[in-house]
């Protein structure tokens, strides 16, 4: 088998050097080498979105990214969404709106929804559904997830206007 390579990335604001084999996915390295187990493996082929992380500002399925491709990249994961011991408003809205049941898809939804709101804070219901269609949830029927994103939009607007 091929030898391990050294890869340097910025992960959750910190420069990280890690070793990986050419066939290892970013998801595998995050979970097994770097102990960032917030991103989940639901399918390992880019169909479910449970492993969504931000790579250079874009949400990606980390199971479809090779770890060696992360050289020089900026990566953020669900572990970095709460800051300074405080939940992000999106996390708070997910909890208040009961937008999770088993919770396995939640990290992926949070990363994808946060990316959407940063790019398009006024996303309509259709735009929210379109942008979250990469993420599968089998428990909630999506209703409360979409509502939590909408409530976060309202909350953010109220915070800005105050």
């Amino acid at each position: 088998m091929a030898k391990k390579q050294v890869v340097t990335s910025n992960i959750n604001g910190e420069e990280v050097e890690f070793l990986c084999k050419p066939q290892q996915s970013l998801l595998e390295v995050l979970r097994d080498e770097l102990d960032l187990t917030g991103a989940k493996e639901g399918c390992n082929n880019g169909n479910c979105g449970a492993c969504t992380v931000m790579l250079d500002g874009h949400p990606v399925n980390s199971c479809l990214v090779l770890a060696v491709e992360a050289e020089g990249a900026e990566i953020t994961t669900v572990e970095s969404i709460s800051q300074g011991g405080e939940l992000h408003p999106l996390q708070q809205c997910f909890l208040e709106d009961a937008a999770l049941q088993c919770g396995i898809c939640t990290p992926g939804f949070l990363v994808a929804a946060k990316a959407l709101l940063e790019k398009n804070p006024d996303a309509t219901e259709h735009e929210i559904r379109f942008n979250l269609a990469n993420n599968l949830c089998r428990c909630t029927g999506y209703d409360k997830i979409v509502k939590a994103v909408q409530d976060c939009q309202t909350r953010t607007k109220e915070a800005v206007s105050q």
Binding site: R31, G38, T77, L87, I104
Partner: peptide, 21 residues
């Protein structure tokens, strides 16, 4: 009433331990 679930913070921060974790 509709209190926040007790395991909620674990599950929105990626801290909850599933078997694969």
């Amino acid at each position: 009433t509709r209190p926040i679930r007790h395991d909620g913070a674990d599950k929105v921060t990626g801290k909850a331990i599933y078997t694969a974790d």
